[in-house]
Amino acid sequence: MMKVTISDIAKAANVAKSTVSKVLNDSPKISQDTKRKVRDIMQQMNYIPSSIATGLARQSSLNIGLLVDMSKESEFLNQFFYNIIGGIESVIGPLNYELTLSNVQHDRPEGHFLNRLVRSKRVDGIIANNSVLTEELSIELNRLQFPYISIGEIIPPASWVDFDNVLGGRMLTGHLLEQGYSAIAFIGGQQFETIFTHRCNGFLQALQQAGITVNSNWIVNGQSDEHGGYQAALNLLQSDERPDSIVCMSSYVAFGVLQAAKELGINVPSQLGIAAFDEYPLSRYTTPPLTSLNIDTFSLGVSSGHLLMDRIRNSELPSRSLLLEPELIPRQSTLRNPS
């Protein structure tokens, strides 16, 4: 099959070769209609600019794009997001790279990051959360052979970095078992979210390993916030079969569980053990202080930065997946048997 050239695109679009070049460089002199028409033909003819295809663009932009979906405030209005930025910056800054935050804008084709950043070569690589990198976007980035890293597990051949959430579920549940708890519930998370599935699978594995039969009523899905935790705990703690401990999907869920236990006069940790994913924001300051699983999001940023820079330097590298290990921080909310 012969390689598609700029001349082929110009002929098919009935425009000059110079126009195609200007579209590739996202020149403001070309109308949006012409850009759309030329880009559609490029896609139909599977045209890949040689500079992108070889990963050897003559001129590096010295920019890395961090994609954000501005329609989801929870994604960027939290400490985790700024820790990730700090981690990426600590890797790329010394290499003279700038970090550019960019809104995804799925709903506006012309303002789409593929056109704004990738096809116009304004960035040399992209880092994004797996909630932003849809399968469709991954396929297109793979086709363009454009370097990108997903924070969170994603379908191959993409490279990604994540925390080992299955291990995390095993660690929290194993800690509760060590402290003598045996009737353990799991609260929070939506049933079809990958992160819930992984965390809950770790929880189930630890119980299975200990020979404990899981009570399906004790796995309660819902919003991973204080209200969700409070309501779920009120129901569980007033049921005929009451758990003696709870693994919480987030520290926010745990705050709600603590509140419910206090209202019902249930002592933590002697009558109820509470352990949570995520150390943020105030786990050590609750009453009693909360046993939590620390997920160091700064190191998530560092790892994604290293993976991306390796890929930019060598486009032939095979895809990589990296699972980081969380850290258990035992505190008074579970310590019935302090060692």
Rank of each mutant, 00 (worst) to 15 (best):
S182P: 03
A183L: 05
A183V: 06
A183K: 07
A183S: 15
A183I: 07
F186R: 04
F186G: 01
F186W: 08
I187M: 01
I187Y: 00
G188Q: 11
G188F: 05
G188C: 13
G188A: 15
G189A: 14
G189F: 04
G189K: 01
Q190D: 14
Q190S: 13
Q191S: 11
Q191F: 11
F192K: 15
F192D: 14
F192C: 10
F192N: 15
T194Y: 14
I195S: 15
I195D: 07
T197Y: 11
H198N: 09
H198T: 08
R199W: 01
R199K: 14
R199L: 10
C200W: 02
N201K: 14
N201P: 08
N201R: 14
F203T: 01
F203Q: 05
L204F: 12
L204Y: 11
L204I: 15
Q205N: 15
Q205V: 12
Q205G: 06
A206L: 02
L207I: 01
L207W: 01
L207V: 08
L207P: 00
Q209M: 11
Q209F: 11
Q209P: 03
A210K: 12
A210T: 06
A210Y: 07
G211K: 04
I212Q: 07
I212Y: 00
I212K: 02
I212F: 00
T213Q: 08
V214A: 12
V214R: 07
V214N: 05
V214H: 03
S216V: 10
N217D: 13
N217C: 08
N217K: 10
N217P: 04
N217A: 14
W218S: 07
W218L: 13
I219P: 02
V220G: 03
N221F: 09
N221L: 05
G222R: 06
G222Q: 13
G222P: 10
Q223E: 13
Q223N: 15
S224A: 15
S224G: 12
D225V: 05
D225F: 02
D225M: 08
E226G: 09
E226W: 00
E226A: 14
E226I: 06
H227W: 04
H227I: 09
H227K: 08
G228L: 00
G228Y: 03
G229E: 00
Y230T: 02
Y230R: 03
Y230D: 00
Q231V: 04
Q231P: 00
A232N: 05
A232F: 02
A233I: 01
L234V: 03
L234E: 01
N235S: 14
N235P: 02
L236D: 03
L237M: 11
L237D: 00
L237S: 02
L237R: 05
Q238M: 12
Q238T: 15
Q238K: 09
S239D: 11
S239K: 05
D240W: 02
D240A: 13
D240Y: 03
E241K: 03
E241Y: 10
E241S: 10
E241T: 08
R242E: 08
R242V: 12
R242L: 10
R242F: 05
P243I: 01
P243Y: 04
D244F: 06
D244G: 08
S245V: 13
I246T: 05
I246R: 00
I246W: 00
I246G: 02
I246F: 02
V247H: 02
V247P: 03
C248S: 09
S251V: 07
S251R: 09
Y252E: 11
Y252A: 09
Y252D: 03
V253L: 00
V253M: 04
A254H: 07
A254C: 15
